[in-house]
Design a protein around this nucleic acid. Structure first.
Ligand SMILES: [Mn+2]
Ligand SMILES: [Mn+2]
Ligand SMILES: [Mn+2]
Ligand SMILES: [Mn+2]
Lengths: 218, 218
DNA sequence: AATAATATTTAGGCAAATCTAAAAATATGT
DNA sequence: ACATATTTTTAGATTTGCCTAAATATTATT
């Protein structure tokens, strides 16, 4: 598989939301910042190679082979992201572009050794799950904290409001990315939440809760 | 610079022996396992970009810009080789092919952080020097073992032939980088050498001796 | 059901990097 | 010095991945 083919397969996988729903030509073009005619060309090629199911005007789905390939690329992408954050001190918002390149390096031995070296991580720096070598992983959902039901547990993986004021507030209150959060109780009146964060009980306003993303694994 | 341009620039650098000697079209073709006509095409392109000096039928040399680029690629290649050996437990005969891919990843921040993470190594797993960020490195004072005089003692710091076959031969015969070698005697007839390596006596052919670099302690 | 709007495909072309075959320049040998 | 051999360049073709413009299919609207 060429670099370009890999990027298409990965895009089709993501646009199909991990589940194998049909993806349209225009959606792929938008997702990859290219033209629909280019997508048609490539989709034919991928179909010839048995990576996607394609019938004119009907959109595409990944074949079993295509889905395996997609998971393998996603695995590499996310393992490299962990490497960049854990070992090279990149911050979570700097890794994507580099991982976009690293995911195409071809060496099964390298990626397996990297996996072991990183301690077989289960999620990447954005809280997304890392498929195992044989393509298995837990599905997870990203939700705003104020939309999580009572009792739900998740990992804090991002902010909606990235203003300095908000980030300073989080810092001051020792809320950081990667923290484990459990929803203990919700106040009907003002939408505020009682949560447990890294074992510590806290009461946070709805305004805060509606700007924190939680990754919830099923 | 494209991946292919980078590989050409690196090949020209190596064929020029690190010194900036003129390199011929055929030499590049051989070194890169491609055809002379392809080399001519690419060399024109590199010349247009100011990376090489080129006049028809006269061969090429790197410009200052070209040499800087070459050193930057060599730096990346060798740092990744150190990473693979030191962190991912690759052996020195397995790293070249993967480093050939990794050297093209574009992120200055990543390579500088990698350098620091590896502890600013000065040589790669084959004993070759690693250029610093600004393209400086100590020219290696290494000498081929078959060129060393009798009685000379040195440390094995690199190989000239880095083919898998040769590296495997060395492993099998327990010859490794860092080993201390003393030249006991030289056979005039076939150029073979009697050496002492880590206290063990050995008789090696001229072919082996002419592919092992020694750093001689004066 | 006919028309308009949108989505998708086809046709034809371009740039990068490669190749083969032929032509031109350079180097070598007597 | 001249013929021959070798090296290098040119000409023309191919593949991959992309593009624009035009044609065609599908979907939405009246
Ligand atoms: Mn990519
Ligand atoms: Mn990620
Ligand atoms: Mn390379
Ligand atoms: Mn090396």
């Amino acid at each position: 598989m060429t670099l370009s083919e890999e990027d298409y397969i990965k895009a089709i996988y993501h646009l199909g939301k991990g589940e194998n729903t049909t993806v349209t030509t225009n959606a792929i073009a938008k997702g990859m910042d290219t033209k629909p005619s280019s997508v048609t060309d490539m989709v034919k090629k991928l179909s010839d190679k048995g990576l996607v199911n394609y019938k004119k005007y009907q959109g595409v789905t990944l074949t079993a082979l295509g889905e395996n390939s997609a998971l393998s690329i996603v695995r590499k992408h996310r393992l490299w992201e962990v490497f960049l954050v854990d070992k090279l001190n990149f911050s979570w918002d700097e890794v994507h572009e580099v991982a976009e390149q690293l995911e195409h390096i071809k060496s099964e031995k390298m990626i397996d050794h990297l996996d072991a070296y990183l301690g077989f991580p289960k999620i990447d720096p954005h809280g997304d799950p890392i498929p195992s070598k044989d393509g298995e992983f837990k599905k997870s959902i990203k939700k705003l904290l104020n939309e999580a039901s009572m009792g739900v547990e998740g990992i804090c993986v991002g902010v909606k409001d990235s203003s300095v004021a908000f980030l300073k507030f989080l810092d001051k209150n020792k809320i950081a990315l990667g923290d484990t959060v459990t929803v203990i109780d919700k106040e009907e009146f003002d939408g505020s939440l009682h949560i447990k964060i890294n074992g510590r009980n806290m009461h946070i306003s709805n305004q805060i809760a509606s700007n924190l993303y939680l990754q919830i694994s099923e």
